[in-house]
């Protein structure tokens, strides 16, 4: 399986998560053929066809857009990795408040422009989910995923509820699980970095967060951070 990891507007944190999987890197090197992966190797081959393109970051320049369209055309599977690629993520937080740099446009998620075959959410994404992707593709499929909210995993972890007991503005009830409630597990309210669950009950969560003492404007901002600014 040939692999290209391509980064657009982002911090490189997502690829760092993969390179941090030290125990699995040797196995990974045997299973995949690295074609493009700047963080690992500067000896990139020609930009030919690849089986798997992993894309990190949002698209915010015409050059990135051209590169993405080209990548899609020469990839069998294209997988969006991390919050920026999925929703605009961190880059979109400015929300158009500042004037964009010359030659750029507001950060856009990948699926605004191309077909995305699979998504691995999170800021940063979970190492386990990156590895499951390779494991599943090796066997000819996509990883199993139970679509549910962080609250479910938070209860399985027997965490104290930050929203109810500490009145912290936790986004667990409307955020996609898969992180095993990493932040609430250490007492930090969920920021929603993995994006919104399907069928999210926005009205009720708005009411709950407002009940934590946040002004309406702040609640709206908090809820909208990793939602994709209406691009979904």
């Amino acid at each position: 399986m040939s692999l290209a990891w391509v980064r657009y507007t982002s911090c490189s944190g997502c690829q760092l998560m993969l390179t941090n999987c030290e125990a699995q890197l040797a196995e990974l090197a045997m299973q995949v053929e690295l074609r493009e992966f700047d963080l690992i190797s500067s000896a990139c081959a020609e930009k030919g066809r690849v089986d798997l393109a992993l894309v990190e970051g949002s698209v915010s320049t015409p050059t990135e857009l051209d590169s993405l369209l080209d990548l899609r055309a020469r990839s069998r599977w294209l997988v969006a990795i991390g919050a920026c690629a999925l929703t605009g993520g961190i880059n979109a937080l400015a929300g158009g408040a500042e004037r964009p740099e010359p030659g750029t446009f507001p950060p856009q998620p990948l699926r605004r422009f191309v077909r995305v075959d699979w998504e691995i959410p999170g800021c940063p994404p979970e190492r386990s989910e990156l590895l499951s992707l390779f494991g599943a593709l090796r066997h000819g499929g996509w990883p199993a995923r139970l679509e549910c909210a962080v609250c479910m995993e938070c209860r399985i972890a027997e965490n104290r509820c930050l929203l109810m007991e500490d009145r912290l503005p936790c986004l667990g009830p409307v955020t996609r699980a898969g992180c095993r409630a990493r932040c609430p597990g250490v007492g930090v309210a969920c920021e929603g970095c993995r994006g919104e669950v399907a069928e999210a009950h926005r009205d009720e969560v708005f009411r709950l967060l407002a009940g934590c003492g946040l002004p309406s404007r702040e609640v709206r901002r908090r809820l909208g951070r990793f939602r994709g600014n209406g691009h979904d």
């Binding site: 909210a149 609250c151 479910m152 938070c154 209860r155 009830p173 009720e204």
Partner: peptide, 10 residues
């Protein structure tokens, strides 16, 4: 009101 978060059955 239900958020369908699943906490109750968990």
């Amino acid at each position: 009101r239900c958020l369908a978060c699943g906490a109750c059955s968990a």
